[in-house]
Each structure stands twice: as C-alpha cells, then as structure tokens.
Design a protein around this nucleic acid. Structure first.
Length: 271
DNA sequence: GCGGTATGCCTAA
DNA sequence: TAGGCCTACCGCG
C-alpha cells in the first residue's frame, strides 16, 4: 500500500479523526518513546497532520513533531475507541475520543525538531500531491540526466511519492520504456508524465488504493477485482492493453515491469 | 513450520 | 551492489 497516496490519505483521515483533541499516545511495542511526546500524562493535543512524499508529520502541541515513514511493511489500523488490545508489534497507538489509530511495522516513527523536519523536507523532490509542488526541478534534472527514467521516478529527491507500482504504470501509460535515459524523454512527454502522476495519485487518495485502469471500480465492486487487474503491467504476466508479454527485471534492486510492445526501448545514443 | 515475497530505503564497501 | 531492517501473509510440505 504505501506509496504517496497512502500517506496523504492517512494525513487527511488522521486529521479528521484526531485533530484538535487530546490524544493518548503509547507504544505497546515499546520501541517508540511516547512519553517524550505526551509527557507523564500520556496525552497531547494534535494540531495538524502533514504529508510530503512518503513521509507523515504529526504536529502536537509543544512543538512536538512525530515523523512516520511506513517503509515497505508499515501499516495503519483504525479502530473505534475504546479499541481492543493492540497487537504486541504496535509501534505507536494514537487514541482519540472516537477513533484509535495503530501503527505497525514502520521504518521510522520518531520525534523530530522543527529543524530536523526541515532538513528532511529539503531532501525531497516536488510531491505531485501537494498544492505547492513545482515540477520545474524535476523537469530540469530529468532533461539533463542519463539515469533511466525508471530510476528517476523512484528517486525521492527528484519526485516524492512515486513508488514501484505507480512507476510501472505511468511509464506504461505514457509508452515509455523504464530504461530510457531521462534526457531522451521529450519535454512534452515528461510534462504529460507529471500530470498523469498527479491525476493517478489523487485518484489513489480518493479510492484508498492504486487504480490505473479506467473506470474499473465502477464496473465491479472493489473486493472482486484482484490487484493485478487494477494494473496494466505491474505484477502481471501479460499486458492488459495488448496482451503481450510483460517483462520483469531488476533495476536498482527493485522489480520493473514493462511491456516492450507498448513501451519501445530507446537507445542511449546521440540526439 | 519454513521460505519466499512485498507498494521502501539506508548504509557499508 | 549486497545486506539489513521492519511485519504479515501465502504456498508448500
């Protein structure tokens, strides 16, 4: 689940559930220092929640910022308060009057200073889900980069929030081979790619999952659609568009999926 | 019960 | 580039 859409949706949901009220903070697993945030009473008022790329920031009163990064395995569970006993692996529990949010398996769950948060944000490229996102730097870097576009899309310092599923899918939808050097992607194609990412991420936030195929959830109820049917190439054997073979290979230790019929290879030559 | 796998990312070498 | 870390689930026997 955790690409940018998951994080932005969590920010929205958790604000709605917990904002403006005293929140009881705990770490059933014990690996997060809840007391540092909530003090001996174990409670702090949540002011707001912000998402940037795959990072989440909870602002509590007293200038306390809790930074969460789900990594590959992290998950939130939302329960009615009073919630049942948490799983022992629960890193952080946020208990509001109506809702309780459990966090399990994150890569990061830590208290940050304002300055540390600033440093972290400074390392991130534009986030297509944020209103303040400016793709100019992404365009500029890509246009002069020999790195494969498939790697650039996964580089959070170039564009923040795209993960392995969106990468495979947007490149397929734009007919771009992941190995294409950034500089070989035409400017108008690159802009189209950005706009597509904006649109699909937004859709992901609304639907709470990644869907890159048109109208899919209107055709069938969500439970009945297998994951690979929501995609064109990601995790698939045949291309959903042309039925051709989907090739899977490793790029920077991550699987890439490509239909070479729909996404012709571009040589890294002159011009 | 074990091994493999996963929508991520960091560090050492 | 390889290994480590985080957790849950699934297929296999």
């Amino acid at each position: 689940m955790p690409e940018g859409h998951t994080i932005h949706r969590a920010a929205r949901d958790h604000e709605q559930d917990l904002r403006g009220q005293p929140v009881r903070i705990s770490s059933p697993q014990g690996r997060f220092d809840a007391e540092a945030v909530a003090g001996p009473e174990g409670e702090a008022r949540l002011l707001r929640v912000e998402a940037c790329g795959k990072h989440l920031f909870y602002f509590f009163e007293g200038e306390q910022i809790v930074h969460v990064h789900l990594g590959l395995f992290g998950k939130f569970k939302r329960r009615r308060s009073p919630a049942p006993e948490p799983r022992p692996t629960t890193r952080m529990r946020l208990e509001g009057a109506k809702w309780t949010i459990d966090l399990v398996g994150p890569t990061a769950c830590e208290l940050l200073t304002d300055e540390e948060m600033g440093e972290l944000m400074a390392r991130l490229g534009p986030d297509p889900l944020r209103d303040d996102a400016d793709p100019a730097a992404f365009y500029r870097y890509t246009a002069r980069s020999r790195a494969p576009i498939g790697a650039i899309l996964m580089d959070q310092s170039r564009i923040a929030g795209v993960g392995n599923v969106y990468r495979a899918e947007v490149l397929h939808l734009e007919g771009i081979h992941p190995d294409t050097p950034g500089s070989k992607v035409p400017a108008e194609k690159l802009q189209a790619l950005w706009l597509l990412i904006v649109g699909l991420l937004r859709r992901g936030v609304e639907e709470k999952r990644i869907v890159t195929t048109r109208g899919l959830t209107l055709e069938k109820p969500r439970e009945r659609v297998s994951r690979s049917e929501s995609f064109h190439v990601y995790g698939r054997k045949e291309c959903r568009s042309c039925g051709g073979e989907v090739v899977r290979y490793m790029l920077r230790a991550r699987s890439v999926y490509v239909c070479e019929a729909c996404q012709p290879r571009v040589e890294d030559g002159e011009g």
